[in-house]
Amino acid sequence: MPTFAYVCPPTLNDCLKLLKENPGAKPYAGGTDLMVKMRDHAVSPQMLVDLKKIDKLKGIREDAEGNIIIGALTTHAEISESPVVLEKYPFFAHACRWVGSQQIRNRGTIGGNICNGSPAAETLPSLYILDARIHLESISSTRTLPIREFFCGPGKTCILPGEIVTAVEIPNISVEFSGSYHRQGRRKVVCIAMVTAAAMWRQDETSPSGMRFSIALGSVAPTVVVAKNAENYLNECAVCSDDVIEHAAMTALKDASPISDIRTTCDYRNDLVYVLTKRCLKDIICGGRELK
């Protein structure tokens, strides 16, 4: 392990000040990514700024408009057990339950999962289709970014120096909707996914089927990708029959550009894109139901 200074500021303001004053500093949340990377000498921060005392970053709340705001320090265990998340977005709670082991879920945070920026990150496909918004704060500014604009490459995010993620916001969906998440790893659990997929429809009178679709895929490109081609195809179909689902799942392949690595081959990833997309769509459409 490299050596570093460790600080655990009590307030967000102290934290942001420290980050501004120490360019070599890194926020430290659950440490489940950072500890492994430091051990491998993949990162060697000069200072770790432990976020764990900052109450402002904790907890899940629903505001008056029905938006859910999840503090960056919220652990995967907390999200997967959160009554409000379970009720409104069970597939997202479910996604968090896929993360690592119970021990990892007890420590790993949603902020860390997002900021780590892995294309295989468990929470991301769901957050993409939910149009989640990332709340960022530095000592001098506060901003909010749609999650789709947050990543610029594997492990690369748009976080500016001195900035941290304070929360993830899931905007309220005022129409009828349904979402689903599927993933496959090399064994049943405690493994990084080979492919992840999330899909959702929301009621939308302007589209022929009355549903507007969003699909996001993980681990098939340098960042999580939106399956634009598949979405467009579905958004133009009047009836979501089995054939349509089948074709949409095939179309999703156009949106993926997987590689072969030690986990699996490009070919198998493509197979999984098709299957997992199809399964998500089947879940949410219940066998070709027409909404209108």
Binding site: Y6, V36, R39, D50, R107
Partner: peptide, 27 residues
């Protein structure tokens, strides 16, 4: 393993099971 995979280092910290190889002592 010292990387959170095997669970042999599991302890209960403030009521929760954690991998003590991924926890800094200062914390």
């Amino acid at each position: 393993c010292e990387m959170g995979e095997c669970g042999a280092c599991t302890v209960i910290m403030n009521g929760k099971a954690v991998n003590s190889c991924l926890v800094l002592a200062v914390e």
